[in-house]
């Protein structure tokens, strides 16, 4: 099965009904799959902090949300994660393209890659790293865990994971 369709299947299995996205080259396939699925309301946003506001609203409305974004945006969402998602104890799985890891072609992406895990660790955000194609087997349990714990979680999917598909 195509990995992007598998990701969306895992969203549905975990009752995710609202997804907001900011594009990344690595994420184009999964964004297309989200857009096509008729049980998912897809709202593209202009900025990841805005997206976290949309997800908070969706959760208040009784719908499980998810944000799909690039790790380079983590720095501009620290306040939204701390003062909105964590402060009000809301669940938010973040499917993050982990740019700047081995296989990266754009040198500047490495700069934020070096800060990605330290920021997540500093914020006590449970983080998972999808590196091989088989790691997709863990996604459904991670999503289930996110809503059980009612916390934000980071699912970092690197170039090796996306290129394996």
């Amino acid at each position: 099965m195509d990995i992007n369709e598998r990701i969306v299947d895992d969203f549905i299995r975990n009752e995710i009904g609202f997804v907001t996205t900011v594009p990344c080259k690595q994420l184009s396939g999964v964004i297309d799959a989200v857009e096509k699925h008729d049980q998912i309301h897809h709202v593209p946003c202009n900025h990841e902090a805005e997206g976290m506001g949309l997800c908070a609203g969706a959760f208040l409305g009784g719908t499980r949300p998810c944000i799909i974004m690039q790790n380079t945006a983590l720095g501009v969402t620290v306040n939204s994660l701390a003062a909105l998602i964590q402060y009000y104890q809301m669940p938010l799985p973040m499917l993050i393209s982990y740019r700047g890891e081995v296989g990266e072609k754009v040198a500047c992406q490495v700069e934020m890659a070096m800060h990605t895990k330290p920021i997540l660790q500093q914020m006590n955000i449970p983080s998972y790293h999808l590196h091989k194609a088989d790691d997709i087997e863990e996604l459904s349990a991670i999503l289930n865990h996110t809503f059980m714990a009612s916390k934000p979680t980071a699912i970092l999917a690197d170039a090796s994971f996306w290129s394996a598909t």
Partner: peptide
């Protein structure tokens, strides 16, 4: 907290109920 996100939270809520 989070200056700026009121309208986004409102829209997300409106779209989901």
């Amino acid at each position: 907290g989070t200056m700026g996100l009121c309208s986004s939270i409102g829209l997300g809520l409106a779209l989901n109920q």
